[in-house]
Design a binder for these strands. Structure first.
Lengths: 231, 231
DNA sequence: TATAATAATTGACATACATCAACAAAATAT
DNA sequence: ATATTTTGTTGATGTATGTCAATTATTATA
């Protein structure tokens, strides 16, 4: 982890949170002044479940996994973090603790902004408060639907949903390098790693995907969507 | 469903949302003026998944179930609604739609408040915005932990957790009338109704609960907690 | 390069859980 | 009170999925 404050201001940052559009240049300057940039290597932990939540985190480069460390040393991955997204979690307004951990999946540049500063803007800037609420609400909705998916779909449907998530939301391409191990794909889809292997093999044999070592290509997206929807 | 506007003002309502403490009497008066009271009989639907979200709902009497209608006509209950709690859901700041349905479990008195009014206060009153964020965040956290519980615990652990939820959060007593059918207990705990029956029988035989028809009494709470924690 | 550690794959097996069917009990309507 | 519908209970059975163990591929390390 290497510090690096040698970066231009938030005012013209192209990776910034959408909600920063609701801040004036003066307010953005304040954000800048309370910012801290850090770099992480693949595998390094950005923050850890249970630790105090003093800063909001934004990635300006790379991807990271967000996961809950649950019972019996089992992990549940809740999603992949990427640029332009607030990573802080619902602890901010509850108990000032992180409720999940975040670890770099690639080399990552992260921008830490003091939470006190953002909270102050929630107080004083109605538009910003509204934007913050929208952000929390969207994530809450996503969690709902992931929950529903896990409860009601069978393994094939859940893994199909995960592949679609990775293609559409994260890599924004039907052909991408899979950064997750089978173990991690399992933690994200709620199944054992062996099940991931078997189902990927099924999808391969049915020409729904082409799974060539670290690369995955979706060949038949309609069918994958159908499997995801039908469970 | 019977209308009844003949109720005293929000200013001295003892069932009101905690976050209303952040409003001035004048602001509360505005809330009052945009309020609508309605009564529901057991089983009646208060609002329905997919319908437009124009009002926040608060119960002033009774209990209701909140549930998502998922795939294949299966329902997933997400919790029980009670007094003093905002019932509106994360659609408010996303797409103005309800993402779950709410139905009365007892006779219910519900108070509808125009969402536009609350949104306006989020804009103009920083404390209120903060309180709203806290509310959404708390619910988001609860969903997380319920999700984790469903993913990592086995049936006995999940049903134990549900019984503790009903005792501690909803009825605030270790002895209560079970308002839910076995079917509904299953929808809340993520299992088939037959499994609910069998596990309740187990708990009975082990003297952990006394399940006498519509009443349930928790006899050995420590053991129930242990089962809930260990999965 | 050789060696060790880690991850992926595969098959055999165990089991938690859902589904189905039959029936009893309770609630509701006639 | 009787009939009808809904809900609860139980046992038998099937299956989705996890666990374990062995084997191979891949990556990291000495």
């Amino acid at each position: 982890m290497v510090n690096n404050t040698n970066v231009s201001c938030c005012i013209d940052c192209e990776h910034r949170w959408e909600n920063f559009n609701n801040l004036s240049d003066e307010e953005l300057k304040t954000v800048c002044d309370n910012r801290h940039i850090a770099e992480f290597k693949t595998g390094e932990i950005i923050f850890k479940q249970g630790s105090p939540l003093s800063s909001a985190v934004f990635l300006t480069k790379g991807l990271a996994k967000m996961y809950i460390e649950g019972y019996d040393n089992k992990r549940m991955m809740i999603g992949i973090a990427k640029k332009c997204r607030l990573i802080a979690g619902p602890g901010t307004y509850v108990d000032n603790r992180h409720h999940y951990s975040v670890a770099a999946l690639t080399d990552v540049t992260a921008c830490f902004i003091k939470m006190d500063v953002l909270k102050e803007f929630v107080h004083t800037n109605g538009k910003f408060a509204e934007g913050y609420l929208r952000d929390v609400s969207e994530k809450s909705l996503q969690t709902f639907y992931r929950f529903l998916s896990h409860t009601q779909k069978k393994m094939h449907g859940r893994l199909a949903a995960t592949l679609l998530y990775l293609a559409d939301e994260i890599h924004e391409s039907d052909k991408f390098t899979i950064l997750l191990s089978r173990q991690e794909l399992g933690e994200l889809s709620g199944m054992a790693k062996e099940s991931v292997v078997r189902i990927l093999k099924d999808f391969n044999e049915d020409n729904i995907i082409k799974d060539k070592c670290p690369n995955i290509e979706i060949l038949n997206k309609d069918k994958l969507k159908m499997i995801s929807n039908m469970g």
